[in-house]
Amino acid sequence: MNIFRFAGDMTHLISVLVLLLKIYATKSCSGISLKTQELYALVFLARYLDLFTDFISVYNTVMKIVFIMSSLSIVWCMRMHPMVRRSYDKELDTFRHYFLIAGCLLGALLVHEKFTFQEIFWAFSLYLEAVAILPQLVLLQRSGNVDNLTGQYVFFLGAYRALYILNWIYRYFTEKHFGRWISCISGLVQTALYGDFFYYYFISWKNNAKLQLPA
């Protein structure tokens, strides 16, 4: 464990807590893409298949359970909670995310570390995580104004993967055979997708103005 990875995990945890706060405090999920949340639930379920088979550390197990439970509860809230589901921007959240799932599954079958069930789902989860934010970014551009909590949610979500890239660079130089190219390349793509959001987020923060994404 290194400081970049720990900071990345904490930033990721903060992003989930900010989203939970927004939904429970405002009883609203306006501006949040249900499709992105469903993709993230799938990412965690596919990646943490080893939750009960490989014990790495208490920290690792606890965090996996937290991420799985939080992502499933957000999806449940947005689908089933009577108050929250009413504020879901159903007509704006129209990204066809099933194509992302199919594409990543195909990609995982073609490019993986080992042709085993767990490794293919692990690669699938990394590819899917890289593109999972797309429905959310499309929804933000369509809905124009971004409320603070949603903006912070997306910002922390992007920052966590950027910190992981520092972690991979650090591990590359400190561990003799660190070759997780699938993680690194997926992580780079993932962070790049946040590029324009980060730019507009920084501009709005600098001008102390509301975050406006160009339509």
Partner: peptide, 10 residues
């Protein structure tokens, strides 16, 4: 070593 096999990152 086994560390490389196991995915120790979240």
């Amino acid at each position: 070593d086994s560390d490389d096999e196991q995915h120790d990152e979240l």
